[in-house]
Design a protein around this nucleic acid. Structure first.
Lengths: 179, 179
DNA sequence: TGGTCGTATTCTAGTACTAGAATAGGCGCT
DNA sequence: AGCGCCTATTCTAGTACTAGAATACGACCA
């Protein structure tokens, strides 16, 4: 049994399950869907990851159509084993509670070394960024017409986390104000 | 100006600002405070990271006391530059809103490939794990007597995130039940 | 005095990943 | 035909990190 897929591998494999694609196209899709930031898949790692998935027998080259000018593309699609691995990995990712601790926690752990006024300013900056991002994500969710159920779930999850952070931050800032 | 510190580097440096320590002791402290999981600092990377911090002039060896039997320890303490870097990095970590996207999002993005009954079971498992962890963290926070303010903040932040996820999960599960 | 125990560090070899340059190769134009 | 152009892939060299084995070395004990 192959080792589990990393989040990045699962992401690419999932896009290939959706439909066969070639490397360059994967890069474009990642951009188009705004997945660049959170998947942390850089351009240069796409071919590398594709190579690994292929070596593990999870995807296979399905043909090399040529589009207008340009070098021949290598289009990949998942093998049956790849489809199974994708479902298994997605299921595991949904079930596994592996809290990911954002850098702010490390920052808070070192809070005593930050001069108080700088700490306050840093918290203010975070609050502003938070408000802005919540608005942006809310807008993205509400303006798009026919979001599939599962995409809406991603928006909602993210918004829930951000709003929880906002509440925490409000409480923490007031508690700092009057010690 | 040195590049920014990674979370792992900031963690170690922060522990050294607290008080001078040697490698083995850092490993013990990380265990004792339950930081192993979320900092993701393995034993074997401690000396590696210490070496890098030293090469960058952020810490310096302060002596090699010997304790009972055993090889000479190398005790490090931060340099003035190291203290500054620590404060700067901690401040940046507090201010910077860099959402960290947990694997569940990748799982949700691939939700359509998961058979419905397996998805439901996976969500159930997550709910159980979530309840358990919330209870454990709540207990840890409330049973310890004199938690410093900033440590309580870390607990509260984490609890807030987990509870938000719990609310989301409840809503999502019921929405799945009756499509 | 020599063995072995416990503590702490260092070394070795390997994996994973990344940035950016180099390359491949057909298309369209003149 | 030949030349530049555009698309897409592949290569090169390096960084970062990790697991686990190997080593160092004084203390303690027979």
């Amino acid at each position: 049994m192959a080792a589990n897929l990393t989040p990045a591998e699962l992401t690419l494999l999932g896009l290939l399950v959706e439909k066969p694609r070639h490397g360059y196209e994967l890069d474009e899709v990642i951009d188009a869907r705004g997945m660049r930031e959170w998947t942390e898949i850089g351009f240069s790692s796409i071919y590398y990851l594709l190579g690994r998935l292929r070596d593990r027998g999870l995807i296979t080259e399905v043909g090399s159509p040529r589009a207008g000018r340009g070098k021949a593309r290598r289009v990949y699609e998942p093998t049956p084993e790849g489809r199974r691995a994708c479902a298994r990995a997605a299921e595991a990712a949904v079930a596994e509670l592996r809290p990911v601790f954002p850098p702010i926690l490390v920052g808070l752990a070192n809070q005593p070394v930050i001069p108080p006024e700088r700490l306050r300013a840093a918290l203010d900056r975070r609050a502003a960024a938070l408000t802005e991002r919540i608005a942006a994500i809310g807008a993205a969710r509400d303006t798009q017409p026919d979001i599939p159920d599962f995409v809406r779930a991603i928006f909602d999850y993210t918004l829930g986390q951000l709003e929880a952070e906002q509440r925490w931050l409000d409480a923490y800032r007031t508690s700092q104000e009057s010690p």
